[in-house]
Design a binder for these strands. Structure first.
Lengths: 227, 227
DNA sequence: TAAATGCTTCGTCTACGATCGAACCATGAA
DNA sequence: TTCATGGTTCGATCGTAGACGAAGCATTTA
């Protein structure tokens, strides 16, 4: 109707507790089935089904049928970005009152933000790549420089394959815990999955927490020149 | 309860049509009274009062009493940032279907995003400052370089005064229309208000649209080196 | 085929919240 | 003081959306 986009629709989608729980669960980046999301939200499978169809209708979720399963993920990085932003709003207010527990400390140190690395570790990575000139912020968005291309392929990531896909390669994402940017986009995802493949880190089973192994932490520091 | 912040609360706040209308109205950056917001949302003043107290309770709004009036603004730049992000989500989906009209074109060209310049013009400004080394993105957040300090004061902005305030000086804000960053923070606000004072541009009465004057457009281009 | 699993649809119930009329405070003007 | 204006609080109404039980599809396994 008006010139501005319809905010209320999306707000209402996020505004329901059950749906919000599902969305936060999907922030892990994993594809989850309808029944898993139902458990996560603490509702029966029928109501979950209703919620999921609404979320999908609102283009917040992406669906991938596979056999008799339905795997849901967040629709794209933008959705994740908005969700992180909202978390930042609550964090700014609540965190001051609530004493941050060990679980939150782990979240702040390293967590997954829709399949890419966030938290303190994510920012270190971003800063390193930017500082060494591997990432460029010159013109539009964020770009991978020639040296960055070499570095990344040398690290073991198939950049050409990522470039072939239609999804944006680099994107920055603002962190609610640290108030700084970290690397998102398909490249950000590739970094995380590759580090996991290298055994540097492990994802916690049912949360967004990431735990680095002892050797992985050292390898991370030396690979990216963290003092 | 859980480790992650409580998203649903904020989503629900944004999710009501009346409240959403108020928030989008406040994206203009102007301070609006309760009754103005009631008109904007199309509800009576009583219900508006209820909504406003909820929004304030949720730390989305900042209140400033003045005489028998109550002036509301968005609580901070982060709130504006999140709202723009949500608009971006809807824009990505709806804008493809809906043919963009002249009103939207004006919005894309130049608009106010919580008191700083957004849209195409906002990005030009940001790119220019970054390209000339006046803004630095090295380490944490965004910073004003020495040359940027000189340039800005030369432009007629009292940077020292801004630095004295507790609000962050520079911040980047992602644009939904252009998918690029522009300058937010108190410095971004200062740029907009100063340009308005110089007569370069005029804000539309009841929208977020900004119209540059003919001379203002030329002055803008030469001041920031837009070809 | 039958049985089991994953998910959807239907119908009903319930509860919360948005809305407004009316009365009530508070501030500023006459 | 009295009047007008800006805003809040109370109470009642009403709608809608969320919840689940039960039945219905669909797909995979036996």
């Amino acid at each position: 109707m008006k010139g501005s986009p319809n905010i209320a629709r999306i707000g209402a989608l996020i505004g329901d507790p059950a749906r919000a729980a599902m969305l936060t669960a999907l922030m892990s980046g994993k594809a989850l089935t309808a029944s898993e999301l139902a458990r996560e939200a603490g509702v029966t499978i029928q109501t979950a089904s209703s919620h999921l169809s609404k979320l999908q209708q609102g283009d917040l979720l992406h669906l991938r049928k596979q056999g008799r399963h339905k795997y849901f993920t967040l629709a794209n990085d933008d959705v994740a970005h908005v969700l992180e932003g909202i978390m930042g709003l609550v964090a700014g207010n609540d965190m001051l009152k609530t004493r941050i527990g060990p679980r939150d400390m782990a979240l702040r140190n390293a967590r997954v933000c829709y399949n890419h690395l966030a938290g303190d570790k994510g920012i270190q990575l971003y800063r390193s790549l930017l500082g060494k000139g591997h990432l460029l912020l010159d013109e539009k968005q964020l770009g991978l420089s020639a040296s960055g291309h070499d570095f990344t392929t040398g690290f073991g990531i198939d950049v050409e394959q990522l470039k072939a896909a239609k999804a944006p390669l680099c994107r920055e994402c603002l962190d609610w815990s640290e108030r700084r940017s970290h690397l998102a986009g398909s490249l950000g995802r590739a970094f995380l999955t590759h580090m996991e493949a290298l055994g540097w880190l492990k994802r916690a089973r049912d949360s967004r927490v990431i735990r680095f192994t002892i050797s992985g932490e050292g390898a991370f520091d030396s690979a990216f020149g963290i003092e």
